[in-house]
Every structure is written in structure tokens, then in C-alpha cells.
């Protein structure tokens, strides 16, 4: 579904990604784990076009997208939940969700999806008239995921959904990520610090070290791998 071929991304003169190549298949949950500064978020930013790559190719359903602007990529069905949530703090919860459906014009479909995200996160329905900035961290993360779902993406890019959240809330959110994957058949590309949890929900995983992919395997196999255990799972 999505393929990266030798992607190199720079921030000014600093190279953040070195020849990243990876594949995401339809309907799977894939995870990218790695230490701080390894380039996990940059990979997502490159895919979504917010920080476009300097070299290499990104193909979505066989179509090159690395030269498209961010809004065109969203229109193709790739939606990102940015790191640190980035909800609109002064807009209400309902308006935030409405912004997610910015590119869509099918009112019925939007209303249906709104019902769906409210069923996933009932707390958002209760808070729908409150400004997004008044929500707690966990609720903001739920809002950010819901807002992305309102774009009805085929591929959902999730950047650190567990950031700053209590373990219980994190587990709840990961449960729902799995549910979205199952019910909506949305392919999910998950970037996560919490490698243990990420490898539990994912089908396959890539390990990223200082801008390079060093390992790639089924999630279960990675969890059993001695090196991964030592470096990322703390076992």
C-alpha cells in the first residue's frame, strides 16, 4: 500500500533520515520503534509531506507522492495524528472534529463518522461544546485520533499516541487503535517510544537507529529478539 524507497530527509543541513526503505501492506498495523532522535517522527512527517524528503521515493498505491504538498496527500487518504496532539485549543471539540472532515463534502458520511468516533470515545460526545484546550491530555489524544478519523483515511499515521499519558489511558487508546484497524480496515502506521506496547498491537515492526533502519521483522519475532529486548524493552 505504502512504500518508501531510499528516502533521505534533511532539516537544513542536518540529515535526519538515511536511505529509509520500508513497506506497509493493506490492513496491517505496522510500528516503527527507536530511541529519541532516531528519526521516527521525521519518517511520518516525510510521508505526510509536512517535511518533504530531499531524495528517494514514496509510493502510495503505486503512485509517487513525495512531490505532492501536504494537503494533496491528505486528499489521497493519508492522515497524520501529529506528535504532541496539536489539537485546535480555542475551537470546541465538535469544531475540531469538523476540521478533520475539512476536505469532505458528503454530509451524510460525515455525520455517520461523527457518530462512530463518538461511539469510540463517549467522553468526547459529553465534552463536544468545550474548547479543545480544556481537555485533559488523554482526552486531547482521543480528540486528535478522532479528528484524523473524520478525514476517513485509508492510512492513519500515529505519532506517539502514548506521549505524556497514564499507563491506563495508554492501554485504552491502544485498544481502540486495534479496534479501528479491525472495524474500519484502516491501515495504521504507528510510531512509538513505548516499544513493548507497540510491538504487542502491531503485526510487523521496523527498528530505526540514527536515521537508518537496522532491523525489520514480525512484531512477535522482534519482541523475542535479544538485541531489541536489551535496547528497547529493558529486559
Amino acid at each position: 500500500m505504502l512504500e518508501l524507497r531510499e528516502v533521505c530527509t534533511y532539516y537544513g543541513n542536518i540529515q535526519a533520515l538515511r536511505d529509509i526503505s520500508l513497506r506497509v501492506e493493506e490492513g496491517e498495523i505496522i510500528t516503527l520503534i527507536g530511541a529519541n532522535g532516531a528519526g521516527k517522527s521525521t519518517t511520518l512527517m516525510s510521508i505526510s509531506g509536512i517535511v518533504p524528503p530531499k531524495r528517494g521515493e514514496i509510493l502510495f498505491r503505486g503512485r509517487p507522492i513525495h512531490e505532492l504538498s501536504a494537503d494533496r496527500i491528505v486528499a489521497l487518504g493519508i492522515c497524520q495524528v501529529p506528535e504532541g496532539r496539536h489539537i485546535f485549543p480555542d475551537l470546541t471539540v465538535a469544531e475540531n472534529l469538523d476540521m478533520g472532515a475539512f476536505l469532505r463534502r458528503d454530509r451524510k458520511g460525515i455525520a455517520r463518522d461523527l457518530d462512530y468516533v463518538y461511539s469510540l470515545f463517549p467522553i468526547l460526545r459529553e465534552r463536544r461544546n468545550q474548547p479543545g484546550g480544556n481537555l485533559s491530555g488523554g482526552e486531547q489524544q482521543m480528540l486528535a485520533i478522532s479528528r484524523a478519523l473524520m478525514a476517513r483515511p485509508q492510512l492513519l499515521l500515529l505519532d506517539e499516541p502514548s506521549m505524556g499519558l497514564a499507563p491506563l489511558v495508554t492501554r485504552q487508546i491502544f485498544e481502540i487503535i486495534r479496534q479501528i484497524n479491525r472495524e474500519q480496515n484502516t491501515t495504521i502506521f504507528l510510531v512509538e517510544q513505548n516499544a513493548n506496547l507497540a510491538l504487542k498491537v502491531a503485526d510487523r515492526g521496523y527498528v530505526l537507529e540514527t536515521g537508518r533502519i537496522t532491523m525489520h521483522d514480525r512484531a512477535g519475532a522482534l519482541r523475542a529478539n535479544r538485541d531489541v529486548q536489551r535496547a528497547y524493552l529493558g529486559i
Binding site: 505526510s48 494537503d71 486528499a75 492522515c79 501529529p82 496539536h86 485546535f88 480555542d90 475539512f102
Partner: peptide, 11 residues
Amino acid sequence: EDEIACQAMGI
């Protein structure tokens, strides 16, 4: 409100 979120929403 937020430029990055705007881009992520396809604006």
C-alpha cells in the same frame, strides 16, 4: 490556532 494540525487536516 495550529499550522501543523492544519496541514495534517489537509488544509
